[in-house]
Design a protein around this nucleic acid. Structure first.
Length: 690
DNA sequence: CTGTTGAAATTTTTT
DNA sequence: ATTTCAACAG
């Protein structure tokens, strides 16, 4: 057996002095400012390992991060390292206990299940995802007659955003309206009423939305009884991607560790990309103010990318209005220059991307070491078609989730109602599926159910309209069956699926594909011990891509990665292809207002570029379908993103897609963006006869 | 009250 | 393209 010192050296051996200092830091509050690719997650994970070697029980360490994908990656690496320690040090039986970790929301859920009772939460609370919450808000919105006003009241999605921002930024409604939603300011009183009712109803029904998970965690920490218990659970708390935490999350951390003992946060202000979720970069700068005894360690050596890539990305981030002073450097000097490929249209862009991917695979680079990144999830549609055509396997992250499709939501609603008869949103959703039952009847039925204390018996005596007569009896049988055996989620899905099948065929014109999805859902459900954990998981951590559905991932299967830029954060690949780098996509047309938002788009672009280890290529299609509604005969001309001005292009190898054309070609000069080609042609032609 | 039809509005990123 | 909302027929 190795001596402990040897094991420590083995674990810390690969860290540089700054990383090592961070990993072996003592108990005081610690802020690690780490540029892109400087090994911040690695450092964090090594810190966990070091702490464990010092005798800290893994179960008393909490690892928090912001996105599910980053959380999974971080926990995977921590587990791998702890496994390594276990091999080197057989004695440490304590290592069997697991590190706590996950997203803020996932950890909140675990804590609230355990301790929620202290603040009056029912043990069987259910979690509403974003669209459930919106539906709930919509019900109340209609009920309060806010939908029918002389001037248009904000839609449910907007209402939800406003509410969510108040909660997460801990900002009064008036201020949120004034700063972020000025066009809704006239509805302040109505919104306040809406939110009051929303909160009240949620509590009655035993429902928590995403924001509630944080809010109740916060409340739990404030509680005189539960607070100390929670504070004593963890000796060390490590937070990744701290620049993306919001006010509420920062407060939770402050309360978890009032004096900063054992608290480590890692972040990079140049990579803050979640302000739309009320994230505050400010949290990073306030950390040393909040904890005056905080140690600050800066990581500047980049281990990820080659010098040419680093030079180019440094130029990009330097365009920010607000400067981010960091000197990223690397010892990896060798490497090709990043490419900027100007393409005729999206089709050519897809061809160019795929050509490079296949070339690199030929020369030994696995598909899974290559990734295509884009601003919005629908940007990859054409590429996906092409990949399918050529039988290239891929895995897409971000974008519309499987569990957000209507038929999956329908089926899950059946189980949710069985789990919690007070879940009016789920109940209404299912009931209106039945012929002859509309919103009014559904609402009455739910009220009837509530007054009977959630006993399905209450519905036995109800006379269904003729259209629903046949199904009503089956429906009640199903509910009783589901209530009788809440354990086997897979069997539950099966029963619900049998009931739902005819309704699905009636409702959708592509029932076959949809019922295949539901078969997959049944398979997924079989991985969970019971209905409650299955439902919680589907709300909090749904399968991130349709390929996830084909059972547990086969490790030696090779697939290309497609991802939104947001979902790509914290990850890296040997080769990265950034597509649709046009003005309007990056920065998105939605945001071309305030300089702050433009800066955020720039940081997002920077995040995308810095994912690359060795090969980086940016693609810009010259023509694109005009507008998002794809009127196929209307083309528009695009301009290269403003984040790659001439001064920055010097750091790229500029190419025109397909055949070589001198890199002097100017794009978007003949036409201003948005001006359609057909209009230009008409105009030119009309000169001929006027 | 339900279910259909047509017009109008919207358009990203994630827990 | 898709979602939301109002108007109308049964």
């Amino acid at each position: 057996m190795k001596a402990k010192k040897e094991v420590v050296e083995e674990i810390l051996g690969q860290l540089n002095p700054q990383q090592r200092q961070a990993a072996t830091h003592g108990d005081g509050p610690l802020l690690i400012l780490a540029g892109a690719g400087t090994g911040k997650t690695n450092t964090l994970v090594h810190r966990v390992a070091w702490l464990v070697l010092q005798g800290v029980s893994p179960g008393r360490i909490l690892l928090l991060t912001f996105t599910r994908r980053a959380a999974a990656e971080m926990l995977r690496r921590a587990d791998a390292l702890l496994a390594q320690i276990r091999r080197g040090n057989k004695k440490s039986g304590a290592l069997t206990s697991q590190v706590w970790g996950g997203t803020f929301h996932a950890v909140a859920t675990r804590l609230l299940r355990q301790y929620g009772k202290a603040i009056g939460l029912p043990a069987d609370f259910v979690i509403h995802d974003r669209s459930d919450s919106e539906d709930f808000l919509q019900v109340i919105r209609t009920e309060l007659k806010l939908a029918k006003t002389d001037r248009r009241f904000p839609q449910k999605g907007t209402c939800m955003e406003i509410y969510s921002r108040c909660v997460n930024a801990r900002m009064p409604l008036v201020d949120v309206l004034a700063t972020v939603f000025p066009w809704c300011a006239m509805w302040e009183k109505e919104l306040a009423r809406l939110f009051d009712t929303y909160i009240e109803r949620k509590q009655q029904a035993g429902i928590l939305d995403y924001d509630d998970l944080l809010l109740y965690w916060h409340a739990l920490l404030e509680d005189a009884q539960a607070g100390p218990v929670l504070r004593n659970m963890f000796d060390y708390i490590l937070v990744d991607e701290y620049q993306d935490t919001n006010r509420l999350q920062a407060e939770i951390l402050y309360m978890l560790s009032p004096d900063g003992r054992g608290l480590t946060v890692v972040g990079d202000d140049a990579q803050a990309i979640y302000s739309f979720r009320a994230a505050e970069v400010r949290n990073i700068f306030e950390f040393p103010e909040h904890y005056p005894n905080a140690t600050i360690i800066t990581l500047e050596q980049n281990y990820r990318s080659t010098q040419p890539i680093l030079e180019a990305t440094n130029q990009v981030i330097a365009l920010a209005q607000r400067r981010y002073v960091k000197n990223l450097w690397t010892e990896r000097t060798e490497g090709p220059r990043p490419e900027l490929v100007l393409c005729q249209d999206e089709q050519q862009q897809a061809d160019e991307v795929i050509q490079r991917i296949l070339e690199r695979r030929e020369s030994g680079l696995l598909l899974r070491q290559q990734a295509v990144l884009f601003r919005a999830s629908h940007h990859s549609m054409l590429l996906e078609t092409e990949l399918n055509r050529r039988n290239i396997p891929y895995h897409k992250y971000g974008g519309l989730k499987f569990s957000e499709t209507a038929h999956v939501k329908d089926l899950l609603a059946i189980l949710r109602l069985a789990e919690n008869p007070r879940d009016t949103v789920a109940g209404m959703r299912v009931l209106v599926l039945l012929p002859g039952i509309g919103p009014k009847t559904a609402k009455q039925l739910m009220e009837l159910l509530q007054s009977a204390g959630g006993q399905w018996e209450a519905w036995r005596s109800w006379k269904p309209p003729a259209a629903a007569a046949g199904l009503w009896d089956k429906w009640l049988q199903l509910l009783e069956q589901l209530t009788a055996s809440p354990k086997d989620a897979s069997a539950q899905i099966h029963a619900a699926r049998t009931f739902y099948q005819p309704l699905l065929e009636e409702k959708y014109d592509n029932p076959y594909a949809r019922s295949r999805d539901l078969e997959q859902l049944e398979l997924i459900a079989s991985r969970y011990p019971d209905r409650r954990s299955f439902l919680a998981e589907m709300a909090l951590d749904p399968p991130s891509s349709t390929q996830d559905l084909a059972g547990p991932p086969i490790l030696d299967e090779d697939f290309l990665v497609l991802s939104t830029m947001h979902s790509a954060k914290g990850l890296e690949w040997e080769a990265v292809y950034v597509i649709n780098a046009t003005d309007g996509n990056i920065p998105s047309d939605m945001t071309t207002g305030s300089p702050e938002l433009i800066d955020e788009e720039l940081r997002l672009f920077y995040v995308a570029l810095t994912r690359a280890r060795r090969h980086l290529a940016v693609f810009c299609p010259l023509f694109h379908y005009y507008g998002p509604f794809g009127k196929t005969d209307e083309y528009g001309m695009s301009q290269l993103t403003r984040f790659l001005p001439r001064s920055v292009q010097r750091y790229f190898h500029v190419q025109s897609g397909g055949r070589a054309e001198p890199s002097t070609s100017e794009f978007g000069l003949a036409l201003r963006p948005g001006e359609s080609v057909s209009a230009k042609v008409r105009q030119n032609l009309s000169r001929l006869w006027h």
